[in-house]
Amino acid sequence: MSAILELNGVSKEFAVNGRRTKAVDNVSFAVEKGECLAIVGESGSGKSTIANMILGIYGTTAGTIAFAGEPLPERREKRHRRAIQLVQQNPLSSLNPRRTVGASLRLALDVHEIGPKAERAARIGALLQEVGLEPDYARRSPAALSGGQRQRVAIARALACESELVVLDEPTSALDVLVQARVLRLLAELKAKRGLTYVFITHDLSVVRNIADRVAVFERGRLIEIGTTEALFSSPTQDYTRRLISAVPVVSDEEAAMRQHIMGDQA
């Protein structure tokens, strides 16, 4: 196994009205090829900022990010753009309200010249089907889609690039659990089939438990704990992690019992 993505001492500072905030503070971790690394943590702890730095939307204040062994340049080349894709946290604004769903998907195919021109329309239909939408949604405008439908289009767009690494920033938080289960299975399938690697940012620890290979926990811009999903859920070492797990809202009493167990174990 080799690391496809490596962050080394990465930090990011922002200045708002002269006040500086450290959004990400000296973070290092590696993502193996073909794995799903979940990032969880406090809201505002820098998870999306890390995603943005991996994608080159923000530069780093300090530290380096390497992809497939080479350090990523500040200005990304086209091959990097194709290799690393993003599914944003916010499904409503991630699609252009004045362009059809089809046009938004087509952009990815056109920019990277994927498939012959004549076949791109069919490809768009197939992509939509892959995420559980009818091909004729290509003609719709985003305003005529529900939040969940939009998010599926955004996932389809990331798949369109045929990338190696997909950063998913809360990709299923707008979906109902049935659709969520379908999308998560789809993601798992694609991972197995195409050897995709995911960085999966989410607040839903129940999802993490079932999809991630490893989990990284963030608090106030710092990586406080990282480990395999099994280990993290059965014996969390950090107090914050324990509080997170114990606060997960659950739907059955057995789960509630397990939460209790984790708290009890360490107390």
């Binding site: 939307i57 753009r81 604004s93 252009n96 362009r99 938004s104 920019v111 990277h112 767009r157």
Partner: peptide, 20 residues
């Protein structure tokens, strides 16, 4: 977000300005 999405895909500045 849609501008960001187009940037992440690698669309040209001209495309983003005039088409998005």
């Amino acid at each position: 977000g849609y501008v960001l999405a187009a940037e992440v895909i690698g669309a040209s500045k001209l495309h983003i300005m005039f088409r998005e």
